[in-house]
Design a protein around this nucleic acid. Structure first.
Lengths: 361, 361
DNA sequence: GAGGTTTTTAGGAGCGTTTCTATAGCACGA
DNA sequence: TCGTGCTATAGAAACGCTCCTAAAAACCTC
């Protein structure tokens, strides 16, 4: 019984036409006499009428739903911690605006299948979560004319995709700068996953700031990782086996930094006394485990929130030119990095410094 | 141009009726002559035709979408770690079956609004993520006739909801039993969030097994927590301030156990040498941080997978009676619990023991 | 070559809304 | 008495698809 009452039923019970019922239920009751409006509203209430959103979408040619598309590369949502916070931000923005969210996780690279699942009339626009290099999703403009915003990957302009991301370059630059200021001249780096744009941006910033400060870059101290903690541990065992070793290591993310530190503990190498370690991301779990990781904090929630906002704007405005928002990160100084030559005097308070602001395309 | 070709366009181009095009594109080409089928398929391909899923849903009276509903209580998805794994399992089952997922996060308790958002014809069924006590979602049967499966909360039978959950009772019983077998007779407990069914079930199992084994229950060692790490730390400072202290503490989840251990470290109390600590859940982040937490591992992914399977079954079968699946947990022995009187001989290998199996309603 | 079967194709009524357009009914001034 | 301009309401055509039913075409058979 419930959930099956249709507009026709309401109209019938109120003794009016479907048009009338529709108008009044959409809030246009000023068009009608007071008592008519009351009759319809009451009828709807008595029948427990709920408008069928599918029929409405068809008639309106708008679905009031947006798709959140996970790159096929991120096989499991779980393993993409990034996505959770972003999703929260998206939900927070969209929920009060009565938009629905469709979670789309293509598990194939077959273009026809992927696009049939994404652009089949069921959404008004989409947010792409961290598309990686070579992802079929990057060819969006080629397969779909739906508005779209990419988050978590700062993409080259030629893709013509709107984007919201953290400012990887500026944030990493600030971190490296700071480490150098701590007196370190022998600094290693653990790279992120080679298919992630962010990995390259963070590495590039590292190299640039090192050069600019005249600190020698030693390739044997720049190790490949994949953003996973195990790869950090692996990098540690590789690095610490070398004859000469850096006094500080910057990992492209916290997970690898934690893996690195774990391995150091196993090998009984003191952090930060013997070697300083910095991370990036300010991962939730790394914080509450007493590692006191010096890292870059950034607001993933806000990334999602702004992405949703930008997407709705695109949906309403029709095709606006692609836009890019970069959100600045903040350096969080904890205790995993010590001054290079004054190991005794470590900062005891947790300090937060803003790195330089974001930029716009 | 793209994404706008309609069935009519395809039919026109292939020189046939809409019916014919529809049938062939739905795979019923055996009804037609080979060349007709080819013509239609080619036309569709040339036009880049993609069936409009909204229109299809309306006509078929099935949406091929299910809703994943987060309890309003879990304000942020992020803070509900549980949900991620479950969602992964759901996605894994549903994606290959061409079902869509709608993420629904009601942020209000107003019934009309909540149900207008959930049961408005846009989904064929729903999975409820960990509804808490007093949640409006529990009145599902009262507001909706859609098939539904609850996960993460083992609910009383009277709600008439199908469920998939881990077997909190059996798993906790196994853990407590094991701790007692390690020789502990002075055991404390940190309770989970009072609105979560699981918190009560875990506590009840703790009390029962203690009684059954004739181990004295000391209420001053049974502390209220809320599943968050801070509440574990708080419990630690409360407990460790007492004149008499337990030799082991069981926390209702890992987050609290970790908070507890952190606080112990601060207070320079050795774990497990002075006090043993066990957790529950085998949280991802607790593992890779060197805490070596003895805990209960359970397969949240499978919970999601089975819930999705059960839901689809309900959708296809019409109203089957509510069903309940409880998945057994596994005791993972690491190093945070030491034998009560032989602190030197701790297990060095990580061992996994299955607790007793699940049960069915 | 008429009647009967079977194969192949088309017609058209939904599905539940929205929305454009039309039409009563009525008061008004000219 | 006749438009004119309101206000309050209804009709009906979409939206793009599915699917039940029926018609047309082809193929037999005697």
């Amino acid at each position: 019984m419930r959930g099956k009452a249709t507009l026709r039923d309401v109209a019938e019970r109120a003794g009016c036409s479907i048009t009338t019922a529709s108008n009044i239920l959409q809030g246009r009751s000023h068009l009608y006499r007071e008592d008519m409006a009351q009759r319809v509203l009451r009828a709807a209430h008595e029948l427990g009428y709920r408008p069928n959103s599918v029929a409405r979408s068809l008639a309106r040619r708008r679905t009031a739903a947006i798709g959140v598309v996970l790159d096929p590369h991120h096989v499991r949502l779980t393993h993409n911690v990034y996505a959770h916070d972003v999703l929260d931000g998206i939900l927070a923005y969209l929920e009060p605006r009565d938009y629905d969210i469709r979670l789309i996780t293509p598990r194939t690279n077959d273009a026809a299948t992927v696009w049939r699942r994404i652009d089949n009339g069921s959404i008004d626009g989409a947010i792409l979560i961290a598309p990686v290099m070579g992802s079929p999703l990057l060819e969006w403009r080629h397969y779909s004319s739906l508005p779209v915003v990419a988050v978590g990957s700062t993409l080259p302009d030629e893709y013509l995709l709107s984007q919201v991301d953290i400012d990887n370059d500026a944030a990493m630059a600030g971190l490296v700068e700071w480490v150098i200021q701590q007196g370190h001249r022998a600094i290693g780096f653990i790279k992120g996953h080679p298919l992630h744009w962010s990995a390259h941006q963070r590495e590039r910033a590292f190299r640039r700031v090192m050069m600019l400060n005249g600190v020698p870059l030693r390739e044997e101290w720049i190790l490949q990782g994949d953003y996973g903690p195990e790869s950090g541990a692996l990098a540690a065992s590789r690095l610490l086996r070398q004859k000469e070793q850096p006094t500080a290591v910057i990992a492209a993310n916290d997970d690898m930094a934690v893996g690195f530190i774990q391995k150091c503990r196993e090998l009984e190498i003191a952090v930060p006394d013997t070697i300083s370690v910095a991370g990036f991301d300010d991962a939730y779990w790394a914080q509450r485990v007493g590692l006191q990781l010096t890292t870059i904090q950034h607001d993933r929630y806000q990334v999602g929130y702004l992405a949703a906002q930008m997407l709705l704007h695109h949906i309403e405005m029709g095709d606006a030119p692609p836009q890019r928002i970069l959100i600045p990160g903040a350096l969080v100084v904890r205790q995993s990095v010590a001054p290079a030559h004054a190991l005794a005097s470590m900062p005891t308070l947790t300090t937060t410094l803003l790195t330089e602001g974001g930029s716009r395309l």
